[in-house]
């Protein structure tokens, strides 16, 4: 048990750090708010102009709920540690992890979840408020199972996103000015995860391609559970695919970091 103590400590440190910066997190919600605002006005205008009640399988209320929740969820799962990793690699801060008996991966994941614990608290409060509002305006229901499955899928989504960014961070071993790639990757994940538009409005081809990629399981899938646009069967299958992706990405991240580390040790840090 003693070996786990240091990871617990890392987790708690990250938690405290996040408490310090909770206003920053709230502020980032305000900025996300603008995107959500554009989205809501856009959909209102679209549904008003369209002769159809249902567009690409979404009713007006479902679409608004999707837009709001996807904005919130994408903020919650966002990574943001890739810059720190690049810095650790560039300035040699990584060396101390080679020397110390703490695994860098474990350190990062404890750090990540430590920060996310506080953010989840904020998001849950926001979530309850939003749901109450939605249930009062529209004929919208939530079952207990849905909420449980949603939370499970969010957990998986967090893991997938963490692993995606952890894997890509290893690029800093080979590229010196890596920030542009990071931000581009961040924005790419943002798009492909369905944070702006639900992915199925772009037609079957896009849907099919994206179902083979891990990205949609970060935002699109969890939000659709709440939205009620998935059957029970589809939900369970989705959770299974999420689990598979977590395993695949763990292998990928191990591979990319092992080859990066080999290079790092070779140059001498």
């Amino acid at each position: 048990m003693k070996a786990l103590q240091k990871y617990k400590r890392t987790y708690i440190l990250a938690l405290q750090n996040e408490m310090e910066y909770r206003t920053d997190f709230l502020l980032s919600f305000i900025s996300a708010g603008f995107i959500i605002l554009v989205q809501c006005f856009l959909w209102t205008a679209v549904f008003r102009s369209s002769p159809h009640e249902i567009i690409n399988g979404y009713s007006y209320s479902q679409m608004i709920i999707y837009s709001v929740l996807s904005g919130v969820v994408s903020k919650l799962v966002s990574a943001g540690f890739e810059g720190e990793i690049a810095n650790d690699i560039k300035t040699g801060g990584l060396s101390k992890f080679i020397a110390q008996p703490i695994h860098y991966f474990s350190y990062r994941i404890c750090n990540f979840f430590g920060g996310k614990t506080v953010q989840t608290g904020v998001v849950l409060v926001l979530f309850v408020i939003l749901m109450t509002v939605f249930m009062n305006i529209w004929d919208f229901h939530l079952r207990g199972v849905q909420i449980v499955l949603f939370l499970v899928s969010i957990l998986f989504g967090l893991l997938i996103n963490f692993l995606l960014f952890y894997s890509i961070s290893a690029l800093a071993f080979i590229i010196t000015e890596v920030w542009g790639v990071y931000i581009a990757f961040n924005q790419g994940v943002y798009l492909l995860s369905g944070a702006i538009f639900p992915l199925n409005i772009f037609g079957d081809t896009v849907s099919r391609i994206s179902s083979f990629l891990p990205f949609q399981y970060v935002v699109f899938f969890p939000v659709n559970i709440i939205n009620g646009s998935l059957t029970n069967h589809e939900t369970v299958r989705g959770l299974f695919v999420q689990a598979v992706w977590v395993i695949v990405l763990m292998i990928i991240s191990k591979f990319s970091w092992d080859s990066g580390m080999r290079k790092y040790v070779a140059v001498g840090g």
Binding site: A45, S49, G180, V181, I201
Partner: peptide, 25 residues
């Protein structure tokens, strides 16, 4: 690279409007 990806995410809005094919407001 970064700006090109951001550009693409803006083009998605346009792509969506063309797919929809209707006049919006």
């Amino acid at each position: 690279i970064m700006e090109t990806v951001f550009l693409l995410s803006k083009l998605i809005y346009l792509f969506f409007v063309f797919r929809l094919g209707i006049e919006i407001n």
